[in-house]
């Protein structure tokens, strides 16, 4: 009788152990399934890297010319862009509003490049959520986009940014010590490019 009691106790212990392990496994899986929230003003960008652009003009624009290419092509973080502010656009070539907004984005780029106050200090980066390199290339060619666009074919960056709808805009201020903070984070078109650039310069104190 005593022996049977021990066996029953061991079985119960095993079940408790299995249940605990299963719960630990579930808790480990939960964060990866839950969408993050987009970074708000005052916060930092989530941690992700973009591939170094193959195009020399794009590398030059982002101030990444000194970067060495590794076998994988190399990568950089948005806050490593040589700029005081980065306008980060989440778009998709499949998004009607992004298509409609494309000329506005080009106007914004031209305003920045034509402004003594902003040129070289404010840069634009676009990431195509769910778009592979071919699809990003189609969008870039169709709208003659002059700033660097990056693919996010597997929605990895999109998920880190909280599964935002498109277009979504995040403006980050990069400080001289390399630290950064988000100053703007909003869904939808920013409207008039000139007014938006003024707002960006004001928000970032450039």
């Amino acid at each position: 009788m005593r022996g049977v009691g021990i066996v029953k106790g061991e079985t119960a212990m095993k079940r408790i152990l299995v249940a605990c392990l299963a719960l630990v496994a579930l808790l480990a899986v939960v964060p990866s399934l839950q969408a993050a929230a987009p970074p708000g003003p005052g916060q930092q960008m989530p941690d992700f890297e973009l591939p170094l652009p193959k195009d020399g003009a794009d590398r030059n624009y982002l101030g990444l010319t000194g970067r060495l290419f590794s076998f994988g092509g190399g990568s950089f973080r948005v806050a490593e862009t040589k700029a005081q502010a980065v306008i980060f656009q989440v778009f998709s070539m499949y998004c009607p509003h992004c298509q409609k907004d494309a000329p506005n984005m080009n106007t914004l780029y031209n305003l920045i490049e034509g402004s003594q106050r902003a040129r070289g200090k404010v840069k634009i980066i676009g990431v195509g959520a769910g778009n592979n390199p071919y699809e990003v290339g189609v969008f870039k060619k169709k709208y003659q986009v002059p700033f660097p666009l990056f693919p996010d074919g597997d929605f990895i960056i999109h998920k880190k940014l909280g599964d935002v709808r498109t277009p979504y805009f995040i403006v980050i201020r990069i400080m001289p010590d390399g630290s950064h903070r988000v100053v703007y984070s909003k869904l939808g078109s920013f409207g008039d490019p000139a007014r938006f650039l003024d707002d960006v310069l004001t928000m970032t104190g450039i």
Binding site: V29, C95, H97, G130, F155, R165, T166, L187
Partner: peptide, 16 residues
């Protein structure tokens, strides 16, 4: 729990 947390189909929804 896992079924409830299953991810939605992958799409970047346009604000349209």
């Amino acid at each position: 729990g896992l079924v409830a947390l299953a991810p939605a189909p992958v799409a970047a929804l346009s604000d349209a």
